[in-house]
Nucleic acid binder design. Sequence first.
DNA 1: GCGACAG
DNA 2: ATCTTGTCGC
Length: 266
Amino acid sequence: MENQESSSSSSQQHWIIEQEILREKLITEDNFTWKLLSTQDKSEGSKEEEDEWLKYIGGVDISFSNDDSSMACGTLVVLDFNTLQVVYEDFSLVTLHVPYVPGFLAFREAPVLVEILDKMKRNGNPFYPQLLMVDGNGILHPRGFGLACHIGVVANLPTIGIGKNLHHLDDLNHTKVRELLGAKENSSKDFITLVGSSKRIWGAAMRSTQASIKPIYISSGHRISLQTAVKIVHMTCKYRVPEPVRQADIRSRDYIRKLEMNAKTK
DNA sequence: GCGACAG
DNA sequence: ATCTTGTCGC
């Protein structure tokens, strides 16, 4: 007979194997057809060829119900990169049976989010994102394969991981990052590269706004380099969290709230 | 052994 | 992730 301990550790073994298999397809360098200019300047008589410039950036997030903790709302938004306005949104209500286990977030959240993306692609929607920002880490992860990598590989889409808290790795923790960001030699920089005791580059900690002391954590998801990821995140930050993720978060919460309001009206 | 641990 | 208003400050 298996007790709960051994059965949960055996499913974690399966998860680890799946992460290792998917990781073989992971690309952590720039690999996309569109171009990115710091100014997005396309004035000089260039044709508006589709896919030439980065125009549509997606953001995904999941929010949860207070009434029923297993009920969740997966959300996808797409923003126009130049105006940062939302041009598309979609929601999917689901019941989640997989628990949250640190290091295995993707097995809880990726299926819903990939399905919403697939639906949009199947419909041939012209706003289908050229790049996706994910509420969760990329390679900043115990096995170098967080939620953003998982979604990126499965959906074959360039993705950037955005963490609002640090997942401790190597010798990296909140205190250490605060020390690094507060160090005099880094005082002028708005971000620092996260290199742990293993010498591996995990990602970057960035104070997105002057006012925000609490950093966000950026890492490559799939088909994008850290350098490019940091650049794009910086360009999409009106507040601490970049707009694609922030809008997905706000709208996802709204959707759940309205749903719970209707439930009480009965 | 104990604590830490994205969302 | 989620419960929550006001409040201090640029």
